[in-house]
Design a protein around this nucleic acid. Structure first.
Length: 285
DNA sequence: TTGTGTTTTATTGCCTCC
DNA sequence: GGAGGCAATAAAACACAA
């Protein structure tokens, strides 16, 4: 028998002592590691190192003592080995078993159980990462929804103003057609969504986009993307409005905040910016 | 001291790979 | 078919609150 072998003592390795060497954390559930001497005094399962290798040990043990906690030193070495490689080749297994004074089978079982514990922990970590990611997304979604509601109410407000203005404009300039407000509800989602710069209002309330699910086409006040037929060849008086760059009335809301829903939308947005102008759009019935 | 919950060690059965 | 891995499970050992 080799000298200096770790002897087996259950009391020195009480349950729930955990060694997380990966994090260099040694947690022993409120109990310090007792010295070898101290441990052997309390409950010496083996009185001598040689006993540890006694092949008949398990047969000698009383039936109720069939499970033997590994000592902290044994666990420490096993953890160290596990950290290096969590799989156990036969050669390493026998070497380790010899070093620890355990049966190769015990070492194999320990690695098996350790892998299972690692997997459980890993699942917990993965869950935490996913949950954190989900919470972030949810928060982002909520703020986008709030922004959407705000923009919708702006559209309603602007439509009201347009209605008032329409009444003041002489009828002939409207080509005998009534001015309909921009739809806000999805049911009335227009083919084109429009960004409206409210140059008529006193404050710089910013801009609005309705129906973010619809294809986004930005209308230029001069070279409109709207087919002329849709307006009966007649467009109401469209006044030139300033871009955000020009009037400097950026309300702090970037276009990307609004055109976030899809790549298509972003493309259209870029197109709109290239045109340089945003305009009021009359929905002419 | 005792009941309960947790951790660790060990077994069993199934599956895959060589 | 044997060896080894894994999931499920049992059971011992332990921690801890009441």
């Amino acid at each position: 028998m080799e000298s200096g072998r770790i002897f087996f003592d259950a009391s020195a390795s009480r349950g729930n002592n955990m060694l997380f060497l990966g994090n260099t954390e040694l947690a022993f559930r409120g109990r310090s590691i007792m010295s070898m001497e101290e441990a052997s005094k309390r409950r010496p399962f083996f009185t001598s190192p040689d006993e540890l290798y006694d092949e008949e040990y398990y047969e000698k043990q009383s039936p109720e003592k069939k499970k033997h906690r590994l000592s902290s030193e044994q666990v420490h070495l096993l953890e160290k080995n596990f950290e290096e490689e969590n799989k156990l080749e036969p050669e390493r297994k026998t070497q380790l078993a010899k070093k620890l004074g355990l049966q190769p089978r015990q070492v194999a079982v320990w690695f098996q159980n350790r892998r299972a514990r690692w997997k459980t922990k890993q699942l917990e970590r993965d869950y935490d990462v996913l949950k954190s990611s989900y919470d972030t997304l949810l928060s982002s979604y909520d703020s986008i929804m709030k922004e959407n509601e705000k923009l919708k109410s702006e559209v309603v407000s602007l439509n009201e103003k347009l209605q008032v203005q329409a009444k003041e404009v002489p009828e002939e300039t409207l080509c005998d057609k009534k001015v309909d407000p921009l739809p806000v509800d999805e049911d009335m989602a227009p083919i084109f969504s429009t960004r409206v710069e409210d140059h008529l209002s006193s404050g710089s309330v910013g801009s609005a986009v309705v129906d973010e699910g619809s294809p986004q086409v930005v209308v230029d006040s001069v070279d409109s993307y709207f087919p002329a037929d849709n307006y009966g060849g007649c467009m109401g008086p469209v006044e030139r409005v300033q871009s955000e760059q020009e009037d400097g009335s950026d309300d702090g809301r970037s276009y990307l905040d609004v055109f976030v829903a899809s790549e298509t939308e972003n493309q259209n947005h870029e197109e709109g910016e290239a045109l340089g102008w945003w305009t009021n759009m009359y929905y002419v019935g």
